[in-house]
């Protein structure tokens, strides 16, 4: 019965009432350039949010603020009940429970695939090594590359690297996963294997915030699509069908007409 609802993720706006992330009037400047303008966003447990927009619109900055890779300068961000502030202890608690996947994979090249995965569980969560290895192998199996465990990042393809990056983040058993353009650096042949892993993750009920231009993927798994413009503000957000078929704002229509034509 649960299985059935998992197969096709619900496309309603709100999946659960449990608020995981809230951003209230968040602004961020790089020097005198304002990258984020008064962002307001609530993310509930189980939501799959896609953020899209032209380059320079602050999409990446937005999700990087959620685990304090960038520091916001105004407004308030609350993640998993902790306020993101300068208190390093709050920040580290949040990072432990928020997984992140980067555009350029950022695997550790000096460690094998398995070691990449077990590093954080062992050193951050103090998990016994044998347990961490079991966990990592089960997650590598989940992203369908258990046979690569003893190889090094330099020996596998881009698509495999990104799936390892997903498994590495999942090893920390995060409550939220952030994806920063996970398919943008991949060869076209490899995009689908990464998206498949992400769809599987979405179906399992993971809360995901994903910056991407894969509109087919957005339609398939998102329950909310957010569009940001060059000024660093949220212009439109809606559930995917309404967003793609009937965008309300002129700027969204312009953007979609450019990314959906081919």
């Amino acid at each position: 019965m649960v299985r059935k609802t998992k197969k096709t993720p619900q496309k309603t706006m709100k999946v659960s009432d449990e608020l995981l992330i809230s951003m209230h009037n968040v602004s961020k400047w790089f020097g005198s350039f304002q990258a984020l303008r008064e962002i307001n966003l609530n993310v509930y447990k189980g939501e799959r949010i896609i953020i899209c927009g032209p380059s320079g619109s602050g999409k990446s900055t937005l999700i990087r603020c959620l685990n304090a890779l960038e520091h916001h300068q105004a407004g308030e961000i609350k993640v998993l009940g902790n306020v993101l502030d300068n208190n390093i202890r709050h920040v580290e608690t949040i990072r432990r429970d928020v997984g992140m996947v980067f555009q350029d994979f950022n695997l550790f090249p000096h460690l094998s695939i398995l070691e990449n995965c077990i590093l954080a569980p062992i050193w951050v969560k103090k998990m016994p090594r044998a347990e961490a290895v079991d966990l990592a192998m089960s997650l590598l199996e989940r992203v369908k590359i258990p046979e690569q465990a003893s190889k090094f990042p330099g020996q596998i393809s881009g698509g495999q690297k990104q799936r390892v990056a997903i498994a590495r983040a999942l090893c920390m058993n995060p409550q939220v996963m952030l994806f920063d353009e996970p398919t943008a650096s991949l060869d076209p042949e490899m995009v689908s294997e990464v998206l498949d892993a992400m769809v599987e993750l979405a179906e399992s009920g993971m809360t995901m915030i994903c910056v991407t231009h894969e509109m087919g993927f957005a339609r398939k798994v998102a329950n909310r699509v957010i569009f940001m413009d060059e000024k660093g503000q949220i212009v439109e957000q809606n559930e995917p069908n309404a967003f793609f078929d009937n965008p309300k704002s002129e700027r969204t229509r312009q953007f979609l007409s450019k990314v959906l034509t081919h």
Binding site: L69, E92, W123, A169, M172
Partner: peptide, 21 residues
């Protein structure tokens, strides 16, 4: 690469562990 610092940080490693590992 700056991404290496960020990947370690995002996994919850503190400064010293990030540097050492």
């Amino acid at each position: 690469d700056k991404g290496q610092y960020e990947a370690g940080t995002a996994l919850g490693l503190n400064y010293w562990k990030n540097m050492r590992l």
